[in-house]
Nucleic acid binder design. Structure first.
Lengths: 335, 335
DNA sequence: TTGTAAGCGTTATCAA
DNA sequence: TTGATAACGCTTACAA
């Protein structure tokens, strides 16, 4: 049904190999300009498109990249995925997307299926601080981590400056007069959870504020998972403000506060992290640290593409982007 | 690097073709049980995985499906995509996702690239009422439409019962005592926009209410796009309630109302459509018609898989799922 | 039940 | 500058 190199060759009256050379940008200089022109025209008129399975088989490269995320329905990821997709496809690569649901067995299976599909590389958003699988797969395949990293830092990554982001949040609250601030922290197995918690300690200390026993880690990143930790945080003596490790946890904290009869921001200020879509429309509009999700994705794709191009193994590169504070209605001056 | 049929054959001491037969469920019955067992063991120990490019080249099937959506960052779609992904991958198919941004040229390009990748079929969420491209591509490739359909109805589809959904919305408002109800309608090029508008007329008439000049179509589906139409709707005589054609338009309507000094639901009731994530947390929590997005995706994938399996062209099938009303805080009894 | 052989559409190597 | 040829890894008639 679809035209092949042979068909084009027949039309032009030359050998298929020459057609291949003429059509491939990296080899077309080996062919006389006139033949190239004739071939291009014939290919056009037959609307020939190269068969990626044939060339992939021959070259042992699929021009395909696996994208491993926890869950597409978490609003943090669609923007990141778009950044990845747009950049990859402009370079002729096709992303293959999988969702692990934060389950390590599922992840192992899915990474297996991506390797079975012969992906040329991997962009991974599911890293844990300890993550043997990634180290192992990284031996065989170029990998770029996004958002979260592994402890060893042996894999290239694109992240944001958590230190800076949390710092912005704490500074903002302190500026509003708060000093009794708690942290509803992310899961400790996640580098983002861990680093934000550490950053919280540091930021508090730098203001001369006590952060001891003021950090309350959750088990998962969801609105529901926040409840217990949020209640503990709110029970801590005199707490007037909470820095949550992401937007879902902030929303959960606000819900828990409401449940206790506290109103946000009147009685308690809450600040989130990520600035997911619609966070300007929730009640109250959420003050949060905005992460440039689409840029993270684009940057990760670029980094992977450079890895895919380079023959020589380059030094492991870590890209850090800078988040910014978005002030809305969930934070207010201490009364 | 990766083991091939030949490697397995060498280990077992038989011909590669036999290994192929033994490993393929559809042909393994042609091989003696003992050989099958030996082959399986050898394949396992070498961790052989079939090369999809080689088998795809040979069989002219990629076991790959193109998924065409307007924009992944629109919260309506991630759930749908998950439904598609989960169902397809369980059947051994890999989805290739593209975003058209509702631009027809982009769409043509991307569909072209999917065909270049030799996808076996297409799941399309970008249908317009008039959509020549899809009709054309549908000649060559199995296509299933999701959410939106084309006017001719010549392509199989999975949608929800718009008629029923809008009916639920209008009934709810009438039940609350409203009779002056307006519709902030979706774009007319979209079947969902069109059908919901028609359904609105019908539902109003069935209650004996006037719907004349009460429908105000927008140009796009976004929160911002709603502004003008919403202002017109709110300016219409005595309007006390608005049925919006989706959640974004509902949010835009609420914002416009607020801008005019009207409060929702006190002065004006607003009802959305889709029930996107977090619509329970916006201000006010949005009453809306919930669409089973994940089921739509799963159903579409199933339908396409059946098309992919069948040799004989089956009659064009249309699956309709039923939406349900979710009552929250954006609607209230007429005062 | 298994082996043989050809071919899917490319590209890389070698020769002309 | 072009042509011939082989090979990538798999499947499938056909033969044995």
């Amino acid at each position: 049904m679809s035209a092949t190199l042979k068909d084009v060759a027949r039309v032009v009256g030359i050998h298929p190999a020459t057609v291949s050379r003429a059509l491939n940008p990296r080899t077309s200089h080996l062919v006389s300009p006139e033949t190239v022109a004739k071939v291009r025209k014939a290919a056009e008129s037959l609307d020939y498109v190269p068969n990626p399975m044939a060339s992939g088989l021959r070259t042992a490269r699929s021009r395909t990249v696996g994208v491993v995320i926890p869950d597409l329905t978490n609003p943090l990821f669609p923007g990141m995925v778009r950044g990845i997709q747009d950049t990859l496809s402009r370079a002729g690569y096709t992303p293959l997307l999988v969702n692990t649901d934060n389950d390590m067995d599922t992840e192992a299976t899915l990474v297996g299926s991506l390797r079975a599909r012969r992906v040329d590389g991997l962009i991974v958003a599911t890293a844990r601080r300890e993550h043997p699988l990634l180290a192992e797969v990284g031996e065989a395949l170029p990998i770029v981590l996004v958002n979260r990293v592994t402890e060893s830092a042996a894999l290239p990554s694109v992240t944001t400056d958590e230190q800076h982001g949390i710092r912005l949040a704490v500074d903002h609250l302190v500026g509003l007069g708060h000093s009794d601030i708690a942290h509803v922290a992310g899961p400790t197995w996640s580098s983002t959870g861990h680093e934000r918690a550490q950053a919280f300690q540091r930021a508090m200390r730098s203001h001369g504020l006590t952060s001891a026993r003021r950090s309350f880690p959750v088990l998962g990143w969801s609105v529901e998972a926040a409840r217990d930790s949020a209640l503990k945080a709110l029970a801590a003596a005199k707490v007037t403000a909470v820095v949550a490790a992401n937007d879902q946890l902030a929303l959960g904290t606000i819900a828990a506060a409401r449940h206790k009869g506290l109103r946000c921001p009147r009685d308690i200020s809450v600040i989130g992290y990520n600035d997911m879509p619609f966070m300007d429309l929730v009640d109250p509009p959420l003050t949060t640290v905005r992460v440039p999700v689409s840029d993270i994705g684009a940057e990760a794709a670029r980094l992977l593409l450079s890895l895919l191009r380079d023959e020589a193994p380059s030094p492991v590169k870590h890209v850090r982007l800078t988040p910014e504070l978005i002030v809305r209605g969930s934070t207010a001056a201490l009364r």
